[in-house]
Amino acid sequence: MTTQDKQQIGQRLLELVALLDYPTAEIAELCGFSFEKLENCYVRLFINDLGGVSAPPFAGCYVEKEDRLNFMSRFSGFCREAGIEIDASFPPDYIPMMVEVLVLLLSVEGSEADVRSLVSSFYQRWPRLFAETLKEHDKTGLYADAGKELCRIIEELPDILIFNAAT
């Protein structure tokens, strides 16, 4: 896989990060929503809502096999060892932030094996559950699609990397 290929995958992931971050008027217009409506939906899905936020944007909330505090400190520890600084004003398992960590690692020359190992350690199962949760609760469809796309990329990424590394 060429550096350019990896850059483009990274770019796509960063677009998804931009979509999953708090909406801006620009994003709303681009995606054909009124800003107010998108904002309202965003708050309900991710910040505070009736019945609790319906789609917590935190990977640890979907990890069944591990205590969430364990998961967060393991991931945070991985970032420290990899020389990656994550924003301390979010829990380490904040999904947009975890996606950016993936992008950073992807941007390193010859990091295919490292990315595969990262994905197998920290990006299992929750992308699918997050996408399913969004599909169930997102009334705009935008976040459901973003979640679906994010899930697809993360799930296919290891195979794409190995396929390209082999050829």
């Binding site: 069944e64 969430r68 505090l69 364990n70």
Partner: peptide, 10 residues
């Protein structure tokens, strides 16, 4: 115990 040993009972 659950906190010390990282047990998520869910």
């Amino acid at each position: 115990c659950k906190r010390e040993n990282g047990i998520e009972a869910n």
